[in-house]
Design a protein around this nucleic acid. Sequence first.
DNA 1: CACCCGTGGGG
DNA 2: TCCCCAAGGGT
Length: 375
Amino acid sequence: MPKGEEGANDGANDGAGVAQALLVWYDVHARHLPWRHRPDPLGQAPLPDPYRVWLSEVMLQQTTVAAVVPYFEKFTSAWPTVEALAAADEAQVMAAWAGLGYYARARNLVACARAVAALGAFPDSEEGLRALPGLGAYTAAAVAAIAFGRRAVVVDANVERVIARLFAIEEPLPGARSAIRAATDSVTPATRAGDFAQAMMDLGATICTVRAPRCLLCPLEKLCRARATGNPERLPVKAPKKTKPVRQGRAFWIERTGADGEVEVLLVTRPGKGMLGGMRALPDDGWSARADGHGAPPAVCAPLGVAQADWQAGGVVRHGFTHFDLELHLVVAVGDPDCRVSAMLGDDAQWWPRARIADAGLPTVFAKAAQLVLA
DNA sequence: CACCCGTGGGG
DNA sequence: TCCCCAAGGGT
């Protein structure tokens, strides 16, 4: 068997030695996670369910294990198979995803489930998986390796960090991506590539951490060039990031008393693309698409007969998004008896029982707003 | 390639 | 409090 010694790999950390040391460590120290089978040194256990592997990988995109676990349990209870998820009402899936963030993932999740149901099963190759919505280079490689036993080169942020240190790659990210991928390829074993990938991620999450790596506990310590040269925590080098601007915006909390005497709140469903796409929300003045300043009240408010004189300040919600911070000023109009024109609302708006607002599946910024109003 | 897209936890 | 960042993908 060729040793795979081309490229970045030069013997100080030969590929077979790295994989061997890491898999031995993983067989003892693997984390027990709901979507994960036990390590399988002999390669005889059945492979994990591709549906659960795929679902967990999508949820884990840019999201911590601790945040994912309860959502994974909720989704697999509600939709135990990809066929069940394919048949689900998309609005219910979006609501179930509320709070987890990056909502395009939930839209792609449904689209992917329906594509897989139409195919009859998940594709069992990296290329086939890569063609599905929501599966990029990382997720396609991870599912191919973990769920189908394929040899695939799996590179996520953990792997980037471990590899940058192991090979002492000084080039800053994101420019170092190609070198890191080549180095990862050189240490990825022909068998147990799925366990190897998960071992790299466990190592990155528990030992080779961003700050204060626990090198004394690391199975790769003797092979690690950054450890040999000191200060492994300085790698990988990253490009400086931009400062986040602060945006101002308004959201509208409008209540009516419904025909059955129940107090209801006006909610909208946001457009499918862009910020919080496809999610239920409070009507707003367009802050998500505007750099600063206050915009006009949303069109959905126009037919409601709420006199602007009746609007009251409802406080300010501060919320941080990926690329800006938001100061959301709440505008409240409560108890207007003329707000009974539900027939004039389009499909993208609805009255929602105030007492059950927690079930509306609001993204966190609007959940905060609801909490402020109802406090 | 650069930018957009959420959220919660840790130091 | 503030800053960093995590099992990235789409455009």
